[in-house]
């Protein structure tokens, strides 16, 4: 049992080690290159980092459970945009005119419900047709985006509610509202996946689907629940983001799925399903945001962020394979 222990340790801790490395690198490099006088590891800067991580982080946490389940969801970006539209638009619906600020929870509920429904639709199709989740969500990525456009054409949908903006920018116990959302989601999903029957069954399905079926686990409902959860989280992400920004562009959320998947893979979750960690995805999200800010801090343009993250993703994949390789014992096929 010795082989694998080291690599497991390295993999489990790798994302945190990477974050520490980033902090050191950008702090040191920042001393020489930074345009501003502020230190990189400035406290406010870090608080802001968590806040900015929240929208993509919430989606990435959801993507983790989908991928543990052995599926993938490419439609989260479109779901995000559609829920954002429902959130902002519903606040100006005449029927809610008399509610005053009570329209806020109603709009939130509507947006979250939309997310759950869109997720459920994905899940239902995957369950009932047996079509691969990659194809189903590739289709709904297009379809949901089409709905986004059909809602308001190519015009942005805007509605600013200052109470909402104040809430979204507020700080409780030092942390911003979005940060709290991210933390609560991370904790809740960690508990769900590690301590509940649903979570353990989801692991089993991703690990060995046949065995799960033979053991009487109903694969379809579990997958559908997970799709509903990621739909809910995409909506929550929209709620967190658009409460503050107040305007949805119909192209918003494009490439969201790719960022989320990148964070999940950086965290070490396997594409093939059955293994993965919510906390490591949290680490992956932080690592990406740190990289964005860090590159900005040392004066590299925003355009390099894509380049660096893409290459890091490939490097992580390569290292993961090197750690898992059985050396010369493996057949050369």
């Amino acid at each position: 049992m010795a082989p694998g222990t080291l690599s497991k340790f390295l993999k489990g801790g790798a994302i945190w080690g990477f974050i520490v490395l980033e902090l050191i690198f950008f702090s040191v490099a920042g001393e020489f290159l930074s345009l501003s006088d502020k230190a990189f590891m400035d406290f406010d800067n870090m608080l802001l980092l968590f806040k900015q991580s929240a929208p993509i982080g919430i989606v990435a946490i959801g993507m983790t459970i989908i991928m543990i389940n052995g599926n993938i969801d490419l439609s989260v970006g479109a779901t995000f945009a559609l829920c954002g539209i429902v959130l902002l638009d519903s606040m100006s619906w005449p029927i809610f005119a008399g509610l005053g600020n009570w329209v806020i929870p109603v709009a939130w509920a509507l947006a979250l419900l939309t997310g759950i429904l869109l997720g459920a639709l994905n899940g239902l199709i995957v369950w009932k047709t047996g079509v691969d989740a990659f194809i189903v969500t590739l289709g709904s990525m297009l379809g949901y985006r089409g709905l986004v456009f059909m809602y308001n054409g190519e015009q942005p949908t805007s509605h600013l509610n200052w109470t909402l903006v104040d809430f979204a920018e507020a700080q409780f116990f030092g942390l911003h509202t979005p940060t709290w959302f991210l933390i609560v989601v991370t904790a809740a999903l960690w508990y769900l996946m590690n301590r509940t029957v649903h979570g353990r069954n989801a692991f089993a399905i991703g690990d060995n689907r046949e065995a799960a079926i033979n053991a009487g686990i109903r694969v379809g409902p579990h997958m559908m629940i997970n799709f509903m959860i990621i739909g809910f989280l995409a909506a929550l992400s929209a709620v967190v983001f658009y409460s503050e920004s107040g305007s949805v562009n119909p192209n918003d959320g494009q490439l969201y799925e790719l960022w989320a998947i990148t964070a999940v893979v950086l965290g070490g979750t396997k594409l093939s399903g059955g293994s993965g960690s919510i906390l490591a995805t949290f680490g992956g999200v932080v690592a990406i945001q740190l990289l964005r800010k860090g590159l900005g801090h040392i004066g590299a343009g925003t355009e390099t962020v894509n380049l660096v993250i893409g290459l890091i993703l490939i490097a992580v994949l390569f290292l993961d394979r090197q750690l898992n390789i059985k050396g010369k014992e493996a057949l050369r096929v």
Partner: peptide
């Protein structure tokens, strides 16, 4: 063999029949 390798021995033996507490907890 039809086992889920990432799960524990106990979880595999009681696959699909994990003992529950309230709220679906294991």
């Amino acid at each position: 063999l039809s086992l889920a390798e990432e799960l524990s021995v106990a979880e595999n033996i009681y696959l699909g029949e994990l003992p529950r507490k309230s709220f679906g907890r294991v």
